[in-house]
Nucleic acid binder design. Structure first.
Lengths: 305, 305
DNA sequence: CTGGAATTCATTCAAATCGATCATTCTATC
DNA sequence: GATAGAATGATCGATTTGAATGAATTCCAG
């Protein structure tokens, strides 16, 4: 299942001494477990998470089984986009994953990766499909791959603290595009929220019910497709009414939102991009830029299971 | 009579060397008995207890159990179903994940977990929703959680060898239920295939194109919903035609397949369950019951740098 | 029941890791 | 520039781990 890595490997990969790495572990900066004999073992995810949070450069990525191009080349976002685009069309999931993790380790935030790489690329693939340059199955397979990567990102960057505020997200009826909602989920989780996507294609009244029952601090709605403008507008407005009454902020965004529609709906904030969503979330619930969770005693909590 | 496990299996499952595991046994960390000839044998319970107490991760849960474990499994699976069902409705993702991985750890195959737990539970939740006992968003959230778990299972059982045969899967037009297709993907990957789900809601002609281009050994189609019987039947039959011509086996299954429809479509095999799919796949591409891929040497190759 | 293949045993040895200690380097402050 | 405090890197003996070995045991098919 999860390959466990030894301190020596990690130390060499990061380029610090073994002593230092052990101290970091003991301070709780890298979540780890100990073997029955007291040796430290850590998961790749934990190491990656630490690298991202601490801003450390990776010296020898090969030692962790990671793509080799990380520190040095520093993928430009443009080059990465091209590579990901062709890999997505060709169904080469591994390549996509590698490049994305490359970008992560090179210091790009998930938000930036989504806004500047994945979203444009998926949009472009959608156009290719519309023009007949790509087969339907290729476009759909690209979506599947994208979702897999998103789920992985969700688990590797998951940082949920106990008292984090709750956020719910969804897509309205007839809008079946899951990717943007899930991106929102990953972004929000990444800035410390307990974000949960309820999925796509949900009628407004059930969303209202979910707000009443879960009392989230934030509700985000992604709009990639509008079947009927009038019913969409009434849906959003009824949603906003409940949200407003229960102290829930309503964030809305998406490519299908034209100016004319936008004028007729109510919301707490309009998001042009995931960056906007992240910013708004930060405003609602300010957190220190580098979380550095107080030595959460991961070990003991794990061992007490 | 409880099933006894050998040190070798346990060692590989936990991800430590056999020597170390035996030392732990001798230190009394894992309760065990010895055969008349002095060989160590331990119960699953003892191993699980040790794992919990020491906080060790499971590396290859499959190794701890055999598919034929039928003893008290019924009870366990039933209890697990109840627990998962309520957790899914309540949106408690962590609980679901915990129980599922517990089952894996207890030696159930993913196939069994899907067939006997997840699929019935999701079906039941669907009924609750139809009866108005569950809100729409609860049902949809359950699907989302289920998908996340499936994706995790998919990555944790990534066993793809180079020369593994290719399998493609999808759902036909108007059928938007992703879960069964993805379950098929996980099951097939688990028995050594390079399985890729193309996603839901795909027209037959693009699937035909995908077969022509990727030349898979197996194509599986999940059918959870049929919009129009006649167009469905022609779609499946045209798909089968291409599959047959290119040497691709066509496996089909799903709850929406009534007897009458079934009589009018062609396929290589009909799957009542994922077990059937797994069996068929094994027939197509027999693999040793315990894959035991030549120790992939990830560690040594890394350490030798 | 029997023979051979596969597994496991106990043991040994090299490599890795532990915890602790100490010297060095970095950093912020006066 | 001087200095105190913190982080880092190096080292040491004791412990843990992983791999290899030949002998003993178990398993399975005939």
């Amino acid at each position: 299942m999860k390959k466990m890595i030894s301190p020596k490997q990690v130390a060499r990969a990061i380029g610090v001494s073994e002593s230092t790495l052990k101290r970091w572990c003991d301070r709780g900066l890298i979540s780890m477990t100990k073997t029955a004999g007291g040796h430290r073992r850590m998961e790749l995810d934990a190491v990656v998470r630490f690298l991202r949070e601490s801003g450390h450069e990776i010296v020898e990525p090969e030692l962790l089984g990671l793509p080799a191009a990380v520190g040095q080349t520093g993928w430009t976002l443009n080059r990465a986009s091209e590579r990901i685009s062709s890999a997505l069309v060709a169904g080469e999931e591994t390549v996509v994953r590698q490049v994305v993790f490359d970008l992560l380790l090179a210091g790009h935030t998930v938000t930036a990766i989504f806004d500047d790489v994945l979203a444009p690329v998926m949009h472009q693939i959608g156009e290719k499909w519309a023009c007949g340059e790509a087969a339907v199955y290729q476009e759909r397979r690209a979506c599947e791959i994208c979702m897999r990567i998103l789920h992985e990102l969700r688990t590797t960057t998951q940082n949920t603290r106990e008292k984090a505020p709750i956020a719910l997200g969804a897509t309205l009826e007839h809008d079946i595009y899951t990717i943007p909602v899930t991106m929102g989920e990953v972004v929000l989780r990444n800035v410390g929220w307990q974000a949960t996507s309820l999925g796509p294609n949900l009628p407004a009244d059930t969303l209202i019910k979910s707000i009443r029952e879960a009392r989230p601090r934030l509700f985000w709605v992604s709009v990639s497709f509008i079947a009927n403008e009038t019913s969409f507008i009434t849906a959003v407005n009824s949603l906003f009414e409940t949200a407003d009454a229960t102290g829930t902020a309503l964030a809305i965004g998406g490519q299908a939102l034209s100016q004319s529609v936008r004028k007729q709906i109510q919301y707490s904030t309009f998001c042009e991009s995931l960056r906007d969503l992240e910013l708004f979330a930060r405003t609602l619930n300010p957190v220190p830029s580098h979380p550095t969770p107080p030595p959460t005693d991961n070990v003991t909590s794990v061992e007490s299971l």
